[in-house]
């Protein structure tokens, strides 16, 4: 039987095989989170790899108080925030447009459509998208999110509020467009 706590313990003590096993088990989950967060395949691949490298460096500090997946999500989210700070807003916009188009194209190939839900999610600012995904899709509480992102609870609340409001507005707009 898969006993995550025991594997985490071994990995934290420096066992390479256990750490590799944990990363293998969570690789797809991590990639899927980062892809929804960035809406950019290239960025998602880079961020997934960066997160794994950080996890290898920091595994000794992981005490197993949360699930390993939660720990990975926290690392990926913080790395994504750091990256966003590094890039200038304007440059980011031009790049995001191109990558969003390419993700849309690939998703059409894999899912046969580009759902309104993804279009609406893609319209959010990345920090709002992160807060909304963590709260409503992954089910973390506001306090847990604040701790994961090392951000005040008030900021998390306002990002969630603004994000979900914007999502509802976008979805209503798409529904109206379709019905007219």
């Amino acid at each position: 039987m898969y006993d995550e706590a025991a594997i985490v313990k071994k990995a934290a003590k420096g066992d390479v095989q256990s750490l590799s096993e944990l990363l293998r088990q969570h690789y797809s989950f991590l990639y899927q989170y980062v892809l929804k967060l960035t809406m950019d395949k290239g960025k998602a691949e880079d961020l997934t790899q960066e997160t794994m490298l950080k996890a290898i460096e920091k595994i000794g500090t992981f005490k197993g108080q949360s699930k390993f997946s939660t720990w990975l999500i926290a690392i990926a989210s913080r790395l994504s925030i750091d990256r966003a700070r590094r890039y200038k807003r304007e440059q980011q916009y031009v790049q995001e447009e191109g990558s969003a188009r390419s993700l849309r194209y690939e998703t059409l190939g894999r899912m046969n459509d580009w759902p309104d839900a993804l279009e609406a999610l893609g319209q959010l600012e990345e920090n709002q998208r992160m807060a909304v995904l963590l709260k409503y899709y992954y089910g973390y509480s506001q306090e847990e999110i604040a701790e994961m992102l090392d951000t005040p609870v008030g900021t998390v609340k306002s990002r969630i509020h603004a994000g979900i409001k914007q999502l509802r507005k976008e979805m209503t707009h798409h529904e109206q467009e379709r019905s007219s």
């Binding site: 690789y27 797809s28 990639y31 899927q32 892809l35 929804k36 998703t107 894999r110 899912m111 759902p115 309104d116 839900a117 993804l118 609406a120 999610l121 409503y136 899709y137 999502l167 979805m171």
Partner: peptide, 14 residues
């Protein structure tokens, strides 16, 4: 949102 996002996850399963 949930079902579409789950479909998206499945489509990009690694």
């Amino acid at each position: 949102m949930r079902s579409e996002l789950s479909r998206f996850d499945q489509a990009f399963e690694q």
